[in-house]
Amino acid sequence: MNTYKRRKIASKLMCAAAFLCAFLTLVPLISIFGYVFAKGIASINPDFFTNLPRPVGEPGGGMSNAIVGTLILIGLSCLWAIPLGIIGGIFLSEFGNNKLGTTVRFTADVLNGVPSIVIGIFAYTLFVLPMKSFSAISGAFALGMIMIPTIMRTTEEMLRMVPRTLREAALALGISQFRTTVSIVLRTALPGILTGILLAIARIAGETAPLLFTAFGNRFWHQSLTQPIAALPLQIFVYAISPFDDWRRQAWAGAFVLIVIIFLISFISRFVIGLHYKSPSSR
């Protein structure tokens, strides 16, 4: 009976410790959101979304070009990184139990750990130097490079979690390997893959270093995708380190908008996927 009492007390203590740790991990998250919200909301007004940045000293102005620029950069990066990442993930999970698969997996993990500024230099050498101009596409190339390993590895993990019995059930019905992979396996794993894609988007949406010498930033509207383009993180960076109060206030507003954009992308895509698909675990 004595040990039972001791176990009960120990159990209570451990529960409390677990709760405390869970709470502690939330503290930084909540304080960042709260602080950015409090600081940013004050400088948010319609002008912020519709106006271009104004020169120093002139009050007002906004970040419309940077908001659109960030959306364009995210879109362009997704355009090439999502298909490549997913198809690569399919390869790793379905056909990757060999030397080539191991090599690709290892390379992807290494790429995932490469500092983003190094990827920026790579994109600079590959795109900016030959084209003799900073550009949106070089920025999207750098950002996509950062997305690919994340998307590829989550796709692989999610596909591997689809039980083999489902593949066999489909094959046993006389469904081809291709159809089985696309219509059964990929479809079953879709919510998990989407989570991976959203994580990758959230990560690149805030990347600044690789854009410094690729997208470069632009105080005006971009002329074309082969020209420098503004991006929120760049604008935030420039404004936040400036000595002007007005700019620093706008930097907070920019940070707030960036967080909202990431949140919206994540919310909308989950909602859209949820309409077409109900995850089996949610039933």
Binding site: A169, A172, I175, T180, S183, I184, T188
Partner: peptide, 23 residues
């Protein structure tokens, strides 16, 4: 199979139709 393995993402209708639809 040994364990029932309907396709979890498909409806009852689509489970039965899968072999035809996917072909």
């Amino acid at each position: 199979f040994q364990k029932p393995n309907p396709f979890p993402v498909l409806s009852i209708y689509d489970n039965v139709a899968a072999g035809l639809k996917l072909n």
